[in-house]
Design a protein around this nucleic acid. Sequence first.
DNA 1: CTGAAAGCGCTTACAG
DNA 2: CTGAAAGCGCTTACAG
Lengths: 340, 340
Amino acid sequence: MTKIDDIMAATGFSRTTVSKALNDKEDISEKTKKIIRKAARDLNYIPNINARNLRIKHSRVIALILSSPSKESEKTNTLYPLLMGVNKYLSSHGYELALYLIDSERQTMKSYVGFCRERNVAGAILVGIKTDDDYIRQLANSEIPYVLIDVDIRNTTHKSVVKLDDVRGAYDATAYLLEKNHRHIAFMNGNKNSTVSEERLRGYMQAMDDYGVFVPKSYITYADFSEDTARRTLKRLITKNPGVTAVFCASDLMALGAMQGARELSLTIPADLSLIGYDDIPIASYVKPSLTTISQDFHKKGYEAAKLITTQLDENEDKKIVIIPHRLIERESVKRLEER
Amino acid sequence: MTKIDDIMAATGFSRTTVSKALNDKEDISEKTKKIIRKAARDLNYIPNINARNLRIKHSRVIALILSSPSKESEKTNTLYPLLMGVNKYLSSHGYELALYLIDSERQTMKSYVGFCRERNVAGAILVGIKTDDDYIRQLANSEIPYVLIDVDIRNTTHKSVVKLDDVRGAYDATAYLLEKNHRHIAFMNGNKNSTVSEERLRGYMQAMDDYGVFVPKSYITYADFSEDTARRTLKRLITKNPGVTAVFCASDLMALGAMQGARELSLTIPADLSLIGYDDIPIASYVKPSLTTISQDFHKKGYEAAKLITTQLDENEDKKIVIIPHRLIERESVKRLEER
DNA sequence: CTGAAAGCGCTTACAG
DNA sequence: CTGAAAGCGCTTACAG
């Protein structure tokens, strides 16, 4: 492994000059830089990042902290494009990525903060953490800059978040159903401790309210973003409320479970029951009937989060909230009802 | 940030002793270790990995090098479970992961070797690299230990590989079709420069041969693992060979494309044409008709690759080839033909 | 525009 | 069982 001293020996310049030339500093003449760069190339020089980071006392690495129930995320595949988005921005802006996957078996894992400190990360991106997560508070209280994806820590105005306008997204989904003349619209939500679920509930309620439709308490259910829970929840919901003509599910995976549950009740979709999802995962367009849903751009989410954290670091930009646009994808799972 | 010197000051022990105690070396008394560990905890000590790696001149980081045409892999979602598998093994064995995603726009990227050298990685896992890839040779010629997933470098016996028995997998798929009395079985392969494609072709040919079925040249097509190419390829294939009753596709994604192509030809699956895939991606069980396929365990692939590279590193174990089992999943896309 | 020197936080051969 | 000292490969204030 060649190091700076080898280039120093080869060119006759001092260690200082070699280092500065390699880093393209202003106070080195072009001529010198050329000589040194050539020598570096000839000697196949590759800088030692550990030494560099140790010396400058910070690094250009961003931690991406993913908390994912693995089984589910293998089906939804939302994290992979997100990861690609983060990587795309980072790798083209001289940053590195440190992945921290939170396993279901949490015990082996150090805290995020420990992970970040150990490797001197410059900043962190947190995704899919529940609002009641303990570590998230730790990070918020540490000196490590971070941006949140889809989460929102309460009682703190000083933060950066990348998210959808989930109130609006849920509103759009519900309004779509209402426009198709559905009135008995149930809502299958995810998890009470998740920011997106809270917002989607608000959007649903608001749309129903705007259309002057009363929402019975029993229309609102929670299935924890799980496919199988959704299947069982749907059966219970419809059995208790046979009048329901449409269900808005807060995720496509739950909509898939609901589809299965409906099948088990011998209900045809959309003839007997209309379904609308959220996310637009790949499976959504392949199921029969294909799933009408609110589409979101996971790649962009990751990309924007990476951009946000790095510009905050590099340009000392202020913390802010970035909204990723969503859009309704009309497919086959919703039926228009006759006006009464 | 507390460092070793702070613990040294707090406990009165030397830097050497503190370091050794923290690393649980044998030649430090239990009593001393206890004192030092407590101080470390109290002071919230977190070791600086950069300093450590710099000093020991190697690291416990494994590079995972993924080359993925992003659009396709968002649908197949095979890389995410693989990543989880790698991470699971590594994180529970004191190793770290450095992700290197090869973008379609290659130009910005350094070579793998450069990436690995820069951060002093202990070893690398390469997945999905074509056999004609240039960088792969570079790595093979470097001193960096590596294991390959699904690829096989020719003319080198000294290597570690994690893969399926793809000859057998393809054989099983083809034999299944033959057992269902199909005789006009076409094969839609991936890419000529991929190890898996070569093996799957061999398996297909071998099965056809074992059953004494002649294979016309025009039955063998290549669709580059792309869904849309598969769609077009199937239409061309069937138009040219209307006698074909079944197609074995070397990936589920291609089978999905073939399904679409068949639909465009007004062919019903499996009534008019039987289809079998490879991989068992999540979508396979959700399409209508659901896809009969060869299932592989991507999580295990990653896990085993990580295990292989680290045991080679730690225990100086020999290079070897690990075979991940496959299994045929019977679903709805294949029809049994009447015996003639 | 260039160079000598110090130091980032750790580990480890060596001596006792 | 413990410690003093050197050094991993870099960057950067400082001096010239």
